[in-house]
């Protein structure tokens, strides 16, 4: 199985679902319309010639300043053909929702929760879309590019008063 075969097969069966497709560093990728994601993924999984039955990776990327701003990336693997294909879905900032793949693969559950936690992308149809790594009351989504990397100021004898003056301490 090679990349052009997969891409052509999808172009034939789902002509309006594919925005663009190509090859990068030897790996094939398909940029898929959001609405068509589930049907494309299901086709890749169930088609007897393709059999991409293993959802290997799922993650989000924030391309701040680009339209659409977010991208959710899926890597599917086919044992039968020993081949991997990458699906990408653009997600606009104004409506950060993507259909969930938990109906097709149980394994999508936690990675989707993680992507929601880190990027604030909502997966519609997910059974329990809650924060997973961060506490429930956390504000914001830290892997977004407009969230700065935080740091804890270290208090030394020279700047102790300064640091302690604006530090919040837990009260008994």
């Amino acid at each position: 199985m090679d990349n052009p075969t997969v891409i052509n097969r999808l172009r034939e069966t789902h002509p309006e679902a594919i925005i663009s497709a190509g090859e990068a560093q030897g790996d094939g990728f398909l940029v898929v319309r959001r609405e068509a994601l589930v049907s494309v993924a299901q086709f890749l999984r169930d088609d007897p010639a393709l059999r991409y039955i293993f959802l290997e990776n799922l993650c989000g990327v924030d391309y701040l300043g680009r339209e659409p701003r977010f991208e959710v990336v899926y890597h599917l693997f086919s044992f039968a053909n020993c081949h991997r294909v990458c699906l990408k879905v653009g997600v606009p900032e104004g409506d950060p929702t993507v259909p969930s793949l938990t109906g097709l693969w149980a394994t999508a559950n936690w990675p989707e929760r993680e992507t929601y936690d880190m990027f604030g992308i909502t997966f519609t149809g997910h059974p329990s879309l809650q924060r997973i790594l961060l506490p429930d009351d956390w504000e914001g989504h830290p892997l977004r590019k407009d969230v700065p990397l935080g740091a804890e100021e270290v208090a030394f004898s020279i700047n102790r008063e300064n640091v302690y003056a604006h530090k919040v301490f837990a009260r008994e």
Binding site: N57, V61, A106, T107, P111, L143
Partner: peptide, 26 residues
């Protein structure tokens, strides 16, 4: 797995790890 996005600079734009323990624990 490692998913890496580069914007051409000397720092990675995004690194994601497909951690086996995370997925297995589900």
């Amino acid at each position: 797995g490692t998913y890496l996005v580069s914007d051409g600079s000397a720092k990675p734009y995004r690194v994601h790890f497909r951690a086996p323990s995370f997925v297995n624990l589900q």
